[in-house]
Structures are given as structure tokens and as C-alpha cells.
Design a binder for these strands. Structure first.
Length: 400
DNA sequence: CACTTAGTGATACAAATGCT
DNA sequence: AGCATTTGTATCACTAAGTG
């Protein structure tokens, strides 16, 4: 298939400089790289930066503004994220960090946009950091980036097929998000708001609800990391909700230490430190593992007494924004680095519904979690499908 | 275009505290 | 006292913002 450099089919440039002092809190939306990333991820952006109408009109008349079917691409930090300008879009963007592809020839912009999801093109985007501190996709590099280019009609057909595959992918992603929402709303439905506590459940401090004392995890200087060791969960593994199945870093420990720091599906891990105040003391569930698993010193292990408290309920409670605001965050120390220590964690009050009700919740959430596993698998399949189609399209095998 | 500065998260570390 | 454990902070790694 014929391959071209992007410089041949687009005028590639950037915007005029807009200084921070010229940012306004209303007017014409102003996008930085992060806004482009957000739009591409969620399809919309709650923009907080603007420039004045006058400035926009001034730049528009003097230098022009992005038009329908132009493409914007992030060029600093997160590289190669695209946004195709829609009809009627009215915004301006930051120079240097976003590259502007002005359409100058008869190509299908959507096709070009999909090119930026293929490994071949992404490799070109990421290659050669130019010796800069932060990886950049420069205008020069953009001009020289090669993409395959079939005739226009074929481009359109390919884009249409990829659209379908992409829609399928997005749908699965949304489904996953819906399951999370569902679990949260069932939590609220069954137990009521944890702050106003309308059902009048009793409250207990966490230390009264555990079968063993809270404890920081194993501290291992890096020289004892080894392929032959035991898998150890770090803060980065435990920051989001539930441990993903897969490989963690391994560390050499004695049997005694292994027993001491072992975790399983009846435990909840809590991140001990976080620079961000709201992010401190985030809980994480532990699924069943066939292999022994220990945890690192930046995490604290909670083992609830299952006669009165189920791990799932504890997780949802600690993860609920309202509960965190009312019961958890006040124990978070606020120095240069926010965090929670054992004393603080033990003093966190838990709204404690009867164990029977907690078990009902557990049964429901189990079903949802199982559905989530299935959804995750189909998401992976959808990704594969998409990538597969992309590969074929570029080899000219997808459409005649 | 590529620099400097800034923000954030993770890990390393040493001093403080606690336990026996 | 002598050790284990906890805690706060230093430092590294990384991404991103802002500017000459």
C-alpha cells in the first residue's frame, strides 16, 4: 500500500501563544494537552480555562482557528492522543503542547485519526525523545510520520469498519462503569447514607472489628528482590479497588516473614501514604490467589472479624466518598505528604449494619463482580478485535 | 523547540516509638 | 537493653505546565 508522510497531506503547525495571565474563567474554551486527553477518553470535558471572545476573534482573523476535520494531537507528556475537530467547535488551544493538523488535501480525517491508534504509528510518535527532559512529538517529527494511505473511498470504508469496532469497545467500557455504579447504589439502598445513618445502625471503631492488629507490610530494601521470591503487593498495585490477577514483584523472605505478612481474600489493604489528601487511605480488595501473597510496608492490612464485619462491606464503606469524608479523612495527617497511620486507622468509626444484611450485600456484589470479570474479558477481546482490524486495514487486507 | 519548574506518586531510609 | 515496628520525610521517577 502506498505510504505517505503526514506533512504531504496536512499543514502541520501549532497555535499562537496564550499566556497564563490571559486565561479567563469564561469566554472561549482553551484546551491544553490534558483537555484533549480527557475528551478522547470521555468524549467531553468540563473546561475550566477560557480566553476572551476578543482574543479569539483577533487570532481567528489573523491566524485562523481549527476547522472541521482538522486534527489536534497531544505532543507533550502523553503523546499522540487525537481529537478531530467537529463542525461548530469553538475553542483555542495551547501552543507547543498540542499540534495542529490543518487539512489541505482530500483525505478522510477519521482514517488518519485511527492511524494514531496503530502500533506502527505510535512507535514513530514515541521514538527518539530528542534528548529533551520530557518526551515530545514535535512538529518536525509529525511532518515526517508515515502512514499508509489507500484511495479516499477505501479510507472511508476502513474508518466505518473501525468505527463499529470502536463503538463495541466503548460500550463494554461503559458497561464496566455501570456495574461499579450499580454496586455503589445498592450499598446506599441497603444501608442508607453512611453519614446521616437513617437506619440508625450502631457505630464501632475499626480496632474493635478486627481479628488481628493492623500492621504495616514487609519492608524490603531492593537488593532482596528476586525472581525466586514470594509475590509482594506494592502501593501501586493496590491503589485501585481490587488487585488485578497477574504478576507482582517478587521478594526473598523467610517462611516466618511470609506467614506474618501473608494476605488473602478475607483482608483489605489500605494505602498508608498519599500526597493527595483525598487519596489517602484508599482501600483495596484482595481476590483469591493460588500463590502466597505478601504486602509491602506502605500498605496496612485489615482483617475484619467476619462474625460482625465482612471484607466487602468494609471495602465499600471505606471507598464511599461520604463515609470517607465523615469518618476517614479526619484521621489523615496533613503534612507535606498526607497519610494515615495505624492509630488513625484503628480509630476510624464504621457504621455497622447487622451481619446478615452485610452478607446479603456480599451475595449481590459477588454476582456483580462476576459479571465484571466477564465484561473485562470481553473488553480485552474487543481491544484485540480492534487492533486486529487495524493491522489488516493497514496491510490492505481489510478492504479491496 | 526544548528548557525550567512544578505536582504527584512510590519507594527508601533513618529516627522515634514500643515491646519483651 | 536490645530488638522489631512504625512513622515522617527525603529522594527518585515520571508527567505536565509554562516560558524564553
Amino acid at each position: 500500500m502506498k505510504s505517505v508522510e503526514l506533512g504531504e497531506i496536512f499543514d502541520i503547525t501549532s497555535s499562537k501563544r496564550v499566556f497564563q495571565s490571559e486565561w479567563k474563567d469564561k469566554g472561549i474554551p482553551f484546551f491544553r494537552a490534558r483537555e484533549i486527553v480527557k475528551i478522547s477518553k470521555y468524549g467531553f470535558v468540563d473546561n475550566e480555562l477560557f480566553i476572551s471572545e476578543e482574543m479569539y476573534e483577533d487570532y481567528k482573523s489573523k491566524y485562523g482557528v481549527p476547522k472541521e476535520d482538522d486534527i489536534l494531537i497531544t505532543g507533550v507528556g502523553t503523546l499522540g492522543i487525537t481529537y478531530k475537530v467537529k463542525k461548530g467547535d469553538k475553542f483555542y488551544f495551547k501552543d507547543g503542547n498540542i499540534i495542529w493538523f490543518k487539512k489541505k488535501s482530500d483525505v478522510d480525517s477519521k482514517f488518519v485519526q485511527y492511524c494514531f491508534q496503530s502500533q506502527e504509528v505510535l512507535r514513530q510518535v514515541q521514538s527518539g525523545a530528542n534528548g529533551a527532559t520530557v518526551g515530545t512529538f514535535t512538529i518536525e517529527k509529525a511532518k515526517k510520520t508515515k502512514i499508509p494511505l489507500p484511495p479516499l473511498a477505501t479510507q472511508k470504508k476502513i474508518a466505518a469498519i473501525l468505527d463499529a469496532a470502536d463503538a463495541h469497545r466503548q460500550k463494554t467500557k461503559q458497561l464496566l462503569a455501570k456495574y461499579d455504579e450499580l454496586a455503589q447504589s445498592i450499598f446506599l439502598d441497603m444501608f442508607g447514607d453512611p453519614v446521616t445513618n437513617p437506619k440508625g445502625w450502631k457505630k464501632r471503631t475499626l480496632d474493635k472489628l478486627l481479628t488481628r492488629k493492623t500492621q504495616n507490610g514487609h519492608y524490603a530494601p531492593k537488593d532482596v528482590y528476586s525472581e525466586e521470591g514470594v509475590q509482594m503487593v506494592h502501593m501501586s498495585d493496590a491503589f485501585y479497588q481490587i488487585l488485578e490477577p497477574g504478576e507482582f514483584k517478587r521478594v526473598l523472605v523467610s517462611d516466618g516473614l511470609r506467614k506474618k505478612y501473608e494476605i488473602n481474600d478475607s483482608d483489605i489493604l489500605v494505602a498508608r501514604r498519599s500526597l493527595n489528601y483525598e487519596g489517602a487511605a484508599k482501600p483495596c480488595m484482595v481476590p483469591k490467589y493460588s500463590e502466597p501473597l505478601i504486602y509491602e510496608s506502605s500498605l496496612i492490612r485489615l482483617t475484619p472479624d467476619q462474625k460482625v464485619l465482612t471484607p466487602i462491606y468494609l471495602f465499600y464503606f471505606l471507598n464511599n466518598d461520604r463515609a470517607r469524608g465523615a469518618y476517614v479523612l479526619k484521621h489523615v495527617t496533613k503534612s507535606t505528604i498526607s497519610g494515615i497511620n495505624n492509630k488513625g486507622l484503628n480509630a476510624v468509626e464504621i457504621v455497622l449494619p447487622p451481619i446478615e444484611l452485610q452478607k446479603q450485600f456480599l451475595n449481590i456484589v459477588k454476582v456483580i463482580e462476576m459479571e465484571k470479570v466477564i465484561a473485562k474479558q470481553s473488553l480485552e477481546k474487543a481491544e484485540e478485535l480492534f487492533q486486529g482490524l487495524l493491522q489488516k486495514a493497514f496491510k490492505g487486507e481489510l478492504v479491496e
